[in-house]
Amino acid sequence: MQYKLVINGKTLKGETTTKAVDAETAEKAFKQYANDNGVDGVWTYDDATKTFTVTE
């Protein structure tokens, strides 16, 4: 399945996608991506759209 990440950071904004077997695996990949880019915020997930959002 394909999952999307929407980033609403202080210095980084945008979107990225990943393919993963489940939401938990996608979340780990997205959190690593956010961490690598210095984004630390509040996470939400919408199962209907398979979209994670992180807001600083």
Rank of each mutant, 00 (worst) to 15 (best):
K13R: 12
K13I: 10
T11N: 12
I7D: 01
K31G: 03
K19Y: 15
F30M: 03
D47T: 08
A34I: 07
K4W: 13
F52H: 02
F30V: 02
G14V: 14
F52T: 00
K50I: 03
T18A: 08
Q32W: 06
T16Y: 15
A23P: 12
E24I: 12
E56R: 03
Y33W: 15
D47W: 08
K4Q: 06
A26C: 02
E24H: 12
V54R: 00
G38N: 10
A29H: 15
K4N: 08
F30A: 01
A48T: 12
T51A: 03
L12D: 05
Y45T: 00
D40K: 13
K4P: 01
T18E: 05
I7N: 01
A20T: 05
A23K: 15
A26L: 01
E56S: 06
E24M: 12
E56P: 09
K13G: 06
A29W: 15
T44C: 07
N35E: 12
T11P: 04
T51S: 04
M1S: 12
I7W: 09
D22S: 10
K19D: 11
V6R: 07
T17G: 05
T16C: 13
D40W: 13
T11S: 11
T49R: 06
D22Y: 04
V21K: 14
V54F: 03
E24S: 11
K28Q: 10
K19A: 09
K31S: 04
D36S: 10
N8I: 15
G41H: 02
K31R: 14
T17F: 15
V6Q: 06
F30L: 05
N37K: 13
I7H: 03
N35G: 08
Q2D: 13
N37F: 13
D47A: 14
A48R: 10
A26G: 02
T16L: 14
Q2H: 11
E15H: 10
A23T: 10
G14H: 13
E15A: 08
D40N: 14
T49H: 07
V42F: 10
A20L: 03
V6K: 08
W43C: 02
V6S: 04
A23L: 12
A23S: 10
A23I: 10
N8K: 11
N35M: 15
A48Y: 09
K19G: 06
N8T: 07
V6F: 07
A29R: 13
D40Y: 14
T49N: 08
Q2L: 15
K19E: 14
E24G: 10
T16D: 03
T55F: 07
I7A: 03
V42M: 09
Y33I: 06
V21L: 13
D40L: 12
Y45M: 02
